[in-house]
Write a protein that binds this DNA or RNA. Sequence first.
RNA 1: GGAGAGGUGCCUGAGUGGCCGAAAGGGACGGUUUGCUAAACCGUUGUAUUCGAAAGGGUACCGAGGGUUCGAAUCCCUCCCUCUCCGCCA
Length: 424
Amino acid sequence: MLQINYIRENIADVKKRLVKKHFKNADQSVDLIIQLDEQKRSIQKQVENILAEENDAAKRIGELMRAKNIAEAESIKVLIPALKDSRKKLEEELQKLEEELYNILITLPNLPHESVPEGRTPEENVNVYHHGEIPTLYDGAIPHWDIAAKYDIIDFELGNKIAGAGFPVYKGKGARLQRALINFFLDEAIKSGYKEIMPPIVVNEASGFGTGQLPDKEGQMYHIGIDDLYLIPTAEVPITNLYRDVIVKEEELPIKNAGYTSCFRREAGSYGAHVRGLNRLHQFEKVEIVQIAHPDKSYQILDEMIAHVKGLLEKLELPYRVLRLCGGDMSFASALTYDFETYCAAQQKWLEVSSTSNFESFQANRLKCRFKNKEGKNQLVHTLNGSAIALPRIVATLLENNQTPEGIKMPKVLHPYLGFEMID
RNA sequence: GGAGAGGUGCCUGAGUGGCCGAAAGGGACGGUUUGCUAAACCGUUGUAUUCGAAAGGGUACCGAGGGUUCGAAUCCCUCCCUCUCCGCCA
């Protein structure tokens, strides 16, 4: 959520940046916010003045009662109903204004960083880095869903039977590969200074709100109605919410946490070839890195997180590229996002395996996560997170790119984790 | 699932109608003392919002929301949450 103070003082800038993010009606929304905010503050002032009078009267009555001066106390008492009456009316109006203001305010997305490219669609994302060669496969190379069946390592049919589409069953070396990747990613995160967190994989509504999934993406999360809990779509939600309503010490920043969790996404509206095999699932495994940062340092930290993810992909020997997302393709809460895509050689497609973002103070404002700055004032922190990394598309790429007539070769770095070198 | 207890500031914990934004202790921070450490002593120590150049002032907040009252942390109602015991279970 954007801070009203910032909007008030930077009207033109806010409008311009909302337009860059392709937010509809940026002009009207901001104008309305400013107008509602002015009305609200004016009425609030009136209400508070009346309250001050009432408080003062009550105090005097108390003093008079103690002095047994009943008559004078009573004479003040009769003045109060009129004050109360006019206050009640103003308060109703105030409440309406506050609600209206809030309802518009939470629909505003975060403002894009100045380095965010103009653009509306994924095609307009800017390729900022690439690494590795696109492999040439032998004749008879097949997509990963066929490989999965051939070696009996991932069973989509069985998943259908016991849960539904998008919930695959990993078997044998397929399951061991999952475990190996999780451990590898966690160990690498720890080496980079992250503290490992194992959070709950369900969260309450307040947490969903804190990181921006609610109310915006209500339909994208699985909801457990009987207990009113949500299955997490990413570990970002519980791990960032650890700091909800917390005032951290400035010298503790940056706070670096990482965690592995299963992630659950309803993916309502997805269908067709995009969802074939591991390309898009309802449940998948992911290691997430999360940082709580000083506002002055957050972009430097974003770069550090980018470097961490690059390192992972390079150790896995995967060809990848890094995209800076354009204004129209960024998520609601993000100020700057880099997507990582690996090249999946049999499908001949780039697949997103990580998304790493700086949310600046957008989430922090919802979370009320602050630190006491040098002037002794509480100031919102910046929050950042990145996938490091989500497993399914990494597995898809490994299977497709490393296939040989003899079997699937595993990258060296995973050998100690796997206990084998080849899926055959 | 059954029964009970409770939600107060960074923590413990007092507070049953006005003098309570809130005792006391602890912690933290600053100072005095000290060769250093410790101890002792003194002081400071909530958030939000608004007015103000500042000093300072107003308003709200004792789980949430309503109500009674001139006045509510305190009384009443509703909801939420936590804890303990019993049962069941990993």
